[in-house]
Write a protein that binds this DNA or RNA. Sequence first.
DNA 1: AGCATCTGTTTCGATAAACAAAACGCCCTG
DNA 2: CAGGGCGTTTTGTTTATCGAAACAGATGCT
Lengths: 293, 293
Amino acid sequence: MPRRRPAGRNPDELDHESADEQIDIHDAPDPATATPEQARKYNNRSVERVVSMLNVLQESPEPMSLVEIHRSIRMAKATAFRYLWTLEKHRYVERDGDGRYRLGLGFVGMQSRDLEVLQDRARPWLERVRDETGETTNLGVLDGTAVRYVEVAESPRTVRMVSVRGSRDPLYCTALGKAIAAQLPAGQVAELLEQVDLKPRTGNTITSTDRFLAELDAVRRQGYAVDDGENEEDGRCVAVAILGTRLPAALSVSAPSSRFTMDDIPAVAARLGEIAGHLAGEPSGHRTDRAGG
Amino acid sequence: MPRRRPAGRNPDELDHESADEQIDIHDAPDPATATPEQARKYNNRSVERVVSMLNVLQESPEPMSLVEIHRSIRMAKATAFRYLWTLEKHRYVERDGDGRYRLGLGFVGMQSRDLEVLQDRARPWLERVRDETGETTNLGVLDGTAVRYVEVAESPRTVRMVSVRGSRDPLYCTALGKAIAAQLPAGQVAELLEQVDLKPRTGNTITSTDRFLAELDAVRRQGYAVDDGENEEDGRCVAVAILGTRLPAALSVSAPSSRFTMDDIPAVAARLGEIAGHLAGEPSGHRTDRAGG
DNA sequence: AGCATCTGTTTCGATAAACAAAACGCCCTG
DNA sequence: CAGGGCGTTTTGTTTATCGAAACAGATGCT
């Protein structure tokens, strides 16, 4: 008989609660096959709390006090204190002059190597396209059943689409997601679709599996994917997949619908296609392997 | 009024130790010398293991199997399994096709905001100087008693100085470290020096506190710091501090001594100084956060 | 001043996690 | 087929960790 948590078992109980977690980006914990019941089987509270703590600090624009942290993660103050003490020792968090906590320098360089290489190569192109179009330009990769924005060049305009680097959006309602999904094996797409609920985010959101699969066909035919107000009411977005890399990734430009019309899309898509070609080909540099000296 | 933080203890150094590698930046917290019990007082084993696990994965150039991990961290296999399972659920690690573990995408965007801004602004300059000089160019920040390489533009030449982004070197034997230390309040320098052991890394390493303090005077006088084979036998390095930012940071160019002579240094230092000036001033772009008030 | 109240720190019985050891199925290789 | 790797799962026992509550040091309020 597995014990239940006395404090209740809402999905947001342990994870810091920002409203966006309702989006159900969560997929099955994965290790090969895991039913919802097994989901908590190997869960380790300590590990989960460390993760929550770091996430909460990441999302906070300014440093947090011990009390703020312990309240937002729902752990005893003393425990949070010990956790933070240890994290500080290892430089995962640091404290400002007032003793408040923020992320430390321990994370520098901490990401998968393939991704880092892709990011480094894509960054200048994103900025170039941002400057050419004046609109926000993104690099996204598949992360579970969602797409994660790993690099963003933001539009300078006051009315603009904002993507937060490190944040995620669902696959089924974003241009990035469609562009990526269109390049995946059919079996994998089916798996992903099983795990997500095609909730309408706007009136335009695709909410049926069949329609989504048909959309992917269209994406493959025309070579680019469009999100026409399917994720954000007044946003339009076009994306092109990056092939030839081990990561399922794509580039996109997103802008307010009012100034980014369907007529504008093909030209931008073509430009993104060029760049995806550059990123797909051979590395311009040759330092893929061993980073250790 | 030194600090507003109530007199508390700081968790001092103690990096994760894989049985094999001893990357000691320093072994300051000698369990014998400074209150052995205090050092372990609030240490949380779970947290420490999470950190070690992530660090081990970060340092490994290729994915690791469960057994490799549990052996290098010295924890029970079943425990490592549970940890990794939870970390995977939260996307801090992911598994490749063979089931081996590597860092996941959960870290994207996870670093302190100030640093991220500085990195973004410095990156193009680093690449420019790298192209101008043909030598490895670095951005380093103070991290505890060491300097951490947070951004690196590597020389394309086959014989070159290699810095690994995210790695650390001691303050007292690097140009970056000296440039940074020279800008710190004397009291803070004294504190740092108490915590480190000035071990000779080469025949040129400064090993006395007095000489180091005199060196900092020289750095302040001439406006740049030099490491003349003090960290690596055949490496020479020049660095200039970045002022006007909240982070203690510096830029450097490092190269093999054979082709980077003491005569070359002033010109490179001047160039670095220009760039440090650009980075020091007002942000060229927009500030997205209200972090600064 | 006095009091209230907010911090971060410390303590100690209650509790959850780790340990070791083993077994499982599973894919290799010989 | 036996043998040895691996990842996954289980068990009772040992051990580290948790959490409530108390502690201490700053504020701020009247």
